[in-house]
């Protein structure tokens, strides 16, 4: 399962289209980090709207992506977490401290816009 990663300006937009296996998730992490380096992107938006489950492994991988992206000088915004999924994640004890979140892709772009203007 490939996750399309699009470049828009200085941003990368990755849209996860369906449930990913652990192996797919690992491959996605590597591919995205490579793209951050090669494209010199300043921010990454990961859209997880289509993910009906965000379990401990998926959450951990997303957190790793955010941290490693930051080490390469870019921010990560996670968008599209569904209300039911959000509730389940916090009940399970999972959190994404330090990872920016927004309602959807549009809000994610607006967030990056505000952050950039603030400098």
């Amino acid at each position: 399962m490939m996750v399309p990663i699009l470049k828009q300006g200085h941003f990368l937009i990755a849209t996860i289209m369906a449930a990913l296996s652990d192996e797919d998730m690992r491959q996605f992490r590597e591919a995205l980090l490579d793209r951050v380096v090669s494209s010199r992107a300043t921010a990454v938006i990961i859209d997880v709207m289509a993910m009906d489950v965000l379990d401990s492994f998926a959450t951990r991988t997303l957190r790793e992506i955010a941290y490693m992206t930051r080490l390469r000088g870019a921010r990560t915004v996670l968008v599209g977490v569904q209300p039911e999924v959000a509730l389940t994640m916090v009940q399970l004890g999972l959190h994404l401290e330090g990872v920016a979140t927004a309602l959807d892709l549009e809000e994610g772009l607006a967030y990056l816009d505000r952050v950039n203007r603030r400098g």
Partner: peptide
């Protein structure tokens, strides 16, 4: 507390 955290995951 869970409500606060879940809201943040939705970007609020």
């Amino acid at each position: 507390v869970q409500t606060v955290e879940a809201s943040r995951l939705l970007g609020a």
